[in-house]
Design a protein around this nucleic acid. Structure first.
Lengths: 181, 181
DNA sequence: GTCTATAGTGGGATAGAC
DNA sequence: GTCTATCCCACTATAGAC
């Protein structure tokens, strides 16, 4: 499904890459390891992908697509609200921590990615913040901060993160449309 | 100043490490590069530090100390408020982006760090949120999210980040003590 | 405390035969 | 499309001479 169905080998490589990423983390995703997982030697991978980055791009694009799917499904299921979005966001990240990290750490290779891919994932937040772009960006930063600090084990051991999420989302929800200060 | 004044060579190594980190980023900080910067061969560094992590620990501790210093100075200068803290936080990160990244990306090697070092940097936020730990954590996540997304160039080109900061800080300030939903 | 030499590991990627 | 062989790179870290 990722990339072209005409090339089953390439698709299998992407599937294997995703499995390695989720199971062992980003450093485990090497061309040698990937070849092994798919049953060929590392150099043969280059018949299917120009370089390692090309494989990573496919993973990234799939990740953003899945994130957008999650948001849209959550809206249908639980109604369109900031709380719904926050829940879906956190669930997404906790279900695929390594993919989430890959999607959000460092620069994004936008030059090599499908141009619409980020926008579709961002659209639900725009809806729910009613066009208040400042609150939208603040809420995005909040959600990303909560998730990445949780994944990286930065909160104190007993911290009630549900409560922190609630407090944050409530604060933003109460301030939509007030335009800053 | 970092570590022991009795060992000037070790101090010089730390200074060089900090310079390399800030100037060229975390991947540039290798033992070879560090030896070169300080005028000795890489293996000789191991007479001064047990391993590479030991050098990094010193940088991390110094970073948290500086962050705490920044907060305390900002409180004295501009008064104790969430807005003051947010400004100081953002300034800190933008002034030392690579150090900030190193301090906040991935797991923290807490076992090898001074135990009080995180707590001192966190204290000002506790003060300003008046003991509402949920709002405190949410505000921390917001600030980190804003900063790291800015450093990693994730916001749209023309985005007004001052406005996003204001909107976020105002939302939190208005909700201190309300205890979530 | 510094050196040279080197071990040991890992990575991405290419050439050319089949 | 896959293979073997290989290049070239980079890294952390140790041994042992000086």
């Amino acid at each position: 499904m990722a990339e072209s169905p005409i090339r089953p080998r390439a698709a299998a490589i992407v599937v294997a890459a995703r499995e390695i990423l989720e199971a062992e983390g980003i450093e485990a995703l090497t061309m040698r390891r990937l070849g092994e997982a798919v049953g060929i030697r590392a150099p043969s991978l280059y018949r299917h992908f120009a370089d390692k980055a090309a494989v990573e791009i496919v993973l990234l694009e799939a990740g953003f697509d899945e994130l957008a799917d999650s948001f849209e499904a959550a809206f249908e299921r639980d109604g369109e609200s900031l709380a719904t979005l926050g829940q879906a966001f956190r669930d997404f990240a906790r279900t695929r921590p390594h993919l989430y990290r890959m999607m959000t750490t460092g620069r994004l290779p936008r030059e090599r990615m499908r141009p619409d891919v980020e926008a579709r994932a961002a659209a639900p937040l725009m809806r729910v913040t009613g066009g208040d772009e400042h609150i939208a960006r603040a809420a995005w930063a909040f959600a990303h901060g909560m998730v990445i600090l949780e994944l990286d084990d930065r909160f104190p051991p007993g911290a009630d993160l549900d409560a922190a999420w609630s407090a944050g989302l409530a604060a933003f929800a109460a301030n939509i449309g007030r335009g800053g200060v």
